[in-house]
Design a protein around this nucleic acid. Structure first.
Lengths: 227, 227
DNA sequence: GCAAAGTTGTGACTTAAGTCACAGCACAGG
DNA sequence: CCTGTGCTGTGACTTAAGTCACAACTTTGC
C-alpha cells in the first residue's frame, strides 16, 4: 500500500457521492483504479463506445456533448470533480454504451474504476443510493431547464443567461471561445459574435478576446428572464 | 378494510416501481391515498406550487410542460401509469415545488400519497432505490435526446421522428391536435400544419383531422434521422 | 521573428421558423 | 338542424437564425 493510494482514497471520500463509504472500500477503489489525464479540448469518451469501466472526474471539467452530422455540437452537461460519467446508460442496462461524447474543457483527470467494484459499492450502502438519486435528480432538473430554454427562449436570452451563470461560478467568463459558447447555448459562432457586439454596444459588457467583463448585470439578467 | 383498497394495493404492486414492496406496505399506501380524476386537457398541477404529497399516475397520461410568457408550451415528459410526478424536485429538497406544470392529455387518474409514507417506503427497500434510479436514468436519457434534437434538428425532422414514435406506441397517431403536436416538438401550430401538408403531398401520410395514416414509414424514418 | 493555426469581427445573403389574418370545416349541444 | 366553438388550411409577411466569405488580429511553435 503506497501513500499515493491512501491519498487518493482520502480524496474520494471527500466527494459527496462517496462520503458515506467506509475507508476500506475507498482504499480498494483507489488501488484498483487507473488514472487518465486529458488536455483541454481532448476527447475523453465517444458516443457509441461501450462503457467498460466506471469513469469518475477527479479534477477539471468534461463536457457531455451531442453532435449533428454537419459538425454542430450541443453541450448537455458539465461533469466536474466528483461526478460520474454516463451514469444513466450504466444504470439502465448491462453492456451499455455512451449516449454522448465527452470532451475535456480544461485539463482534466479521470479515474477509471472497474464496473464490478461499482456494483459492489452500489449494493453496500443505502446512503450511496440516496446520493446517486440526488445526483440524477439534479441533472434532470438542469436538462429540463435546458430543453425548455432551447425551445422557448431566443438565442439572445440564452446567451445572457449563460453569461450570468458563468459570472456566478468562475468569476468572469474567461478562457472560453465563441465557438464553445455557441455549443453551450445551442447556436453558431457568428450569432454569438453578433449578440456579444450588441451587448457591448449597449454598454452591458466589454469584449477583450476570451475575456468578457460584465458591466451591467441587471440588464443581462432582465434579458435572461425573457420567456 | 374494504375490497376496493385491496384491489388498489394489488394494482400498485403491479407497477415496476412498487413490485418489490411487501403487501402490507402496499395496503397502507392504498388506504391512506386519495384518488383524483382529471378530464382530457385538465390541469393536474402547476409550476411553482408546493409539492405536499406524492403524486402517482394510476392510469392515463400527464404531460409535464413548461410555458413561455407568450403562451407557448414545450412538453418535457409524459407521465403514464406507474410514474411518479415531480420526482426530481422531491428528491432534491424538502418543501420542494413543482418545476413544471402538468396537464392530463387523456382522462387520467392520479393517486395522492402522503410524503411521510413515501419516505418510509424509500427507506424500506434497497430494491426500491434501484427502481427509482432506473426510472430517473430513463428520463435523463429521454431529456438528453429531446434537448439535442431541439438544438440540432429541424422542425421537419422532429415532426417525422414524433410521428414514428406515435405510430410505434399507440398504433396510429390519433386524437391529438396540431397544437399539441407543436408543443411536443417545440414549434407552433402553423408549422405543424405546413409540414404535415408537405408530408401528405409527398405521399408519406394521409391527413384526416386528428387521424393521420402513415403511408411511407421508411421515408419518414429517413427524415427523422437527419441531424 | 515569421509562418501557421486558431480566433474574432462583420457585411451580405439565404432560409427556416414564427406571426398574422382569415376562411372553411367538423362536431357537440341546444 | 342550426349555431357556436374549436380545429384545420393556407397565403402573405416578418424576423430570427444560420450560412458564406473574407479580413484582421492573436497566439504558438519553430
Amino acid at each position: 500500500m503506497t501513500g499515493a493510494e491512501q491519498d487518493l482514497a482520502r480524496r474520494l471520500g471527500q466527494f459527496e457521492l462517496f462520503s458515506m463509504l467506509p475507508a476500506d472500500l475507498l482504499l480498494r477503489m483507489a488501488k484498483s483504479s487507473v488514472l487518465h489525464s486529458y488536455g483541454a479540448r481532448e476527447e475523453v469518451f465517444c458516443e457509441g463506445d461501450e462503457i467498460n469501466s466506471l469513469l469518475l472526474v477527479l479534477e477539471g471539467d468534461v463536457c457531455a456533448v451531442k453532435r449533428s452530422s454537419d459538425g454542430r455540437e450541443q453541450v448537455l452537461a458539465h461533469l466536474k470533480a466528483g461526478d460520474l460519467i454516463s451514469l444513466a446508460p450504466l444504470l439502465l442496462q448491462k453492456n451499455a454504451c455512451h449516449t454522448e461524447s465527452g470532451r475535456a474543457s480544461h485539463p482534466t483527470k479521470v479515474l477509471s474504476i472497474s464496473l464490478e467494484l461499482f456494483h459492489e459499492i452500489a449494493e453496500s450502502s443505502p446512503e450511496f443510493h440516496r446520493a446517486l438519486q440526488r445526483c440524477l435528480a439534479g441533472r434532470l432538473e438542469q436538462l429540463s431547464f435546458l430543453a425548455a430554454s432551447l425551445s422557448l427562449q431566443s438565442a439572445r436570452s440564452r446567451l445572457a443567461a449563460f453569461l450570468i451563470r458563468q459570472a456566478d461560478q468562475g468569476g468572469q467568463p474567461a478562457g472560453i471561445t465563441q465557438e464553445e459558447i455557441a455549443a453551450e447555448i445551442g447556436t453558431v459562432r457568428e450569432i454569438v459574435a453578433r449578440l456579444l457586439r450588441d451587448f457591448a454596444r449597449a454598454g452591458w459588457l466589454e469584449r477583450k478576446r476570451q475575456h468578457l467583463v460584465l458591466k451591467n448585470r441587471a440588464a443581462l439578467e432582465e434579458e435572461a428572464q425573457r420567456w
